[in-house]
Design a binder for these strands. Structure first.
Length: 314
DNA sequence: AACTTGGTCAACCGCTCTGAT
DNA sequence: TATCAGAGCGGTTGACCAAGT
């Protein structure tokens, strides 16, 4: 048996609000406030609407000070940076943007900002590959294919996260790489939710033997960065395409910078792919990511055991 | 001009969280 | 402590509109 509906669906109006309903709700709230009880409000206000509907209409549209459309670049940046660090917690993100509602931010992200970033990112990858292609030609001039590069394939050492909102790789459950890896309780790492697993080659051990010390990279990553060798990575030799296989986001910390240095990428924005590809975009690239502390990226003072993952392109 | 396709956004649905009892 | 109702939230839907064919 399902949960009882919050209102009598037979007797409430649904769909778009009329100007009359808007003004009824507005004037009622102006006079009496919400009274802390949205369920009872429509009856008191004389509206044939569900209380939840009234609440939504008020919060997203009628409330004073609401802004619609016309997001500024500064707001874009706030949304991007918060999305990277906390994921799709729209209400939290909206609370950082005066006059914006969670619904607005969510719609804006889904319909515009995400595409904008993916486009920008694929352009970046395109130029990155183009540059590499030119380098490989020993200085000779290359004509460049006008079509964007197809997604590379990757061998994945560690990694499966089903639905955590930020700082995660993900691999389809039916990917052959999954079966080649041993599941490890990710709860110990404090970064994945209870449904997620971190997968490592058997036998599972932390840190993974053979992973290089981060000091090779200038020590700017809180002491925890590791860079697995291609041999380590080859232990997980199954391949998957990153097109729909790897999702990635980051909080733009020092680890990311080191990771990007290793990959020859430009900056943290390179990693904002939200399920797209482009984290590693060259055959032979080897990189590392970490799990530790209170989030995906360890902070100074976190336990160094709580880290690492590695990927390379094959 | 008619139809199709794709984008936008308001609104709904169903779940979890929270506070009162 | 357990239960329940209401609030809050994120994901999804569908109506509407504009652009393309």
């Amino acid at each position: 048996m399902g949960r009882a509906p919050c209102c009598d669906r037979e007797n409430v109006k649904r769909g778009p609000w009329s100007p009359e309903e808007d003004s009824t709700l507005k004037s009622y709230v102006a006079k009496h406030g919400t009274g802390g009880n949205w369920i009872a409000l429509p009856q008191k206000a004389g509206l044939r609407r569900c209380g939840k509907s009234c609440r939504l209409r008020w919060l997203n549209y009628l409330r004073p000070g609401i802004k619609h459309g016309g997001f500024t670049e500064q707001e874009d940046n706030v949304i991007c940076s918060l999305y990277k660090s906390i994921g799709s917690r729209w209400s939290v993100i909206a609370s950082h943007l005066p006059g914006r509602t969670d619904n607005d931010v969510k719609n804006y992200w889904n319909t515009k900002l995400k595409k904008k970033l993916l486009t920008a990112h694929s352009n970046l990858n395109y130029h990155h590959n183009k540059k590499k292609s030119n380098n490989n030609s020993n200085g000779s001039k290359h004509t460049c294919d006008s079509t964007p590069p197809s997604p590379p394939t990757a061998a994945v050492l560690a990694v499966k996260s089903e639905d955590y909102g930020f700082g995660s790789f993900s691999m389809p459950a039916d990917n052959p790489a999954s079966s080649a890896l041993a599941p490890v309780d990710a709860g110990a790492f404090g970064c994945f939710n209870s449904h997620s697993q971190v997968l490592v080659p058997e036998p599972a051990s932390f840190p993974v033997p053979g992973l290089a010390d981060q000091s090779n990279y200038g020590g700017s990553a809180n002491g925890y960065v590791v860079s697995p060798s291609a041999q380590d990575i080859s232990a997980a030799s199954s391949c998957l395409t990153t097109d729909n296989g790897i999702g990635w986001s980051d909080n733009a910390g020092g680890v990311v910078d080191v990771f990007l240095m290793e990959l020859g990428l430009a900056g943290p924005m390179d990693l904002l792919t939200d399920g797209g590809y482009g984290l590693l975009d060259r055959v032979g690239d080897v990189g590392s990511v970490q799990v530790g502390g209170s989030g995906l990226w360890p902070n100074a003072g976190d336990n160094p055991q709580e880290l690492y993952q590695g990927v390379t392109y094959s």
